[in-house]
């Protein structure tokens, strides 16, 4: 369990990292926290000839608010996000989800940029990016920036829109509205494991207590997290009560085309989706202005 030979580069600036990527192309891989990449290298599933360490790049780990957006730098680690007062105020579901990632040691090293770039189907950040319509900011070799929607960025299992010569630099999340309820619910075999199924939900109500916006996404049902757009749209104008939650949960049960694996068969994933959506909506409702 030792990695194949590679050359290590300690990039001190974004420009240097981009130049190294341009030079080494497909042979190169960026490393931040290394929580997935190092394991894959040790198993020789990944054999990059060049490893470009971006931890030394100043300013890539910031967390800041920009009007109605929350900007999280690619190098921000899960623990920093989970513990950030700013995140807890502006978009608390992100802090909650970050706190569910792995174990303490993993949260100290793993980064949001790394997690999104790796795109594990059972990871929290891809689910959050899809749920919250995150805008993924990417530095291109030319130095120009481009922005991709979360749902477009995460393409498939371990597959993203990020080019081999690009660097994910920042993620822009919308802040939740005042009185907007939210909930993140996940189920795993053990605390800290990748989830079998997870649910993210936000719920905003109008003055009459009717649903004005529902965001609802499920992880673990497909190769990527899925956004339940139809259910979200149909929910607008509904009065959220127990029957409504039951109705939505029943609809969520049929979402996606889950597969069987060692820890869960497809039917079990559907059952979990139903239970977790129920719990998530009840909690989001409770946290909403009405709750």
């Amino acid at each position: 369990m030792k990695p194949a030979p590679f050359t290590y580069h300690d990039a001190q600036s974004l420009e240097e990292a981009l130049a190294l990527l341009a030079e080494h192309g497909d042979e190169a891989k960026l490393i931040a926290g290394g929580q997935s990449l190092v394991a894959m290298m040790n198993l020789r599933l990944a054999q990059p000839g060049h490893l470009i360490d971006i931890n030394g790049i100043a300013g890539l780990d910031g967390i800041e608010r920009d009007g109605e957006s929350l900007l999280i730098g690619a190098l921000a680690c899960h623990a920093d996000i989970a513990g950030s007062d700013l995140v807890r105020e502006a978009c608390p579901i992100l802090a909650d989800a970050a706190g569910h990632i792995g174990q303490y040691a993993i949260r100290q090293r793993g980064t949001i940029g790394g997690s999104l770039s790796h795109a594990d189907p059972a990871a929290e950040w891809p689910l959050m990016a899809i749920l919250m319509d995150a805008k993924i900011e990417i530095a291109q070799p030319s130095g120009d920036r481009r922005t991709v929607e979360g749902a477009d960025f995460i393409q498939s299992i371990y597959t993203t829109d990020l080019g081999p010569d690009e660097v994910l630099t920042r993620v822009r999340f919308p802040c939740v509205e005042r009185d907007e309820g939210w909930a993140f619910k996940s189920f795993a075999r053990r605390r800290g494991d990748y989830f079998i199924v997870a649910v993210g939900a936000t719920l905003a109500l109008d003055g009459a207590g009717r649903v004005s916006r529902l965001r609802l996404a499920l992880g673990g049902m497909e190769v990527t997290a899925i956004r339940l757009v139809e259910i979200e749209q149909e929910a607008i104008g509904n009065t959220p009560d127990g029957d409504w939650i039951e109705h939505i949960a029943a609809a969520a049960r049929g979402a996606g085309e889950p597969a069987d694996d060692q820890h869960a068969d497809a039917e079990y994933r559907r059952e979990l989706a139903c239970v977790l959506v129920t719990d998530a909506l009840a909690e989001a409702l409770n946290r909403s202005g009405r709750g």
């Binding site: 075999r189 605390r191 990748y194 060692q262």
Partner: peptide, 28 residues
């Protein structure tokens, strides 16, 4: 509660990592 070495039907061991061979942690 957790532990199982899994060989698939053809005899290939699918639990070569601690991500796949689950063992209880203190918090469990």
């Amino acid at each position: 509660l957790f532990e199982q070495v899994v060989y698939d039907e053809s005899g290939y061991n699918q639990t070569g990592l601690l991500a796949d061979y689950l063992v209880a942690t203190a918090s469990d």
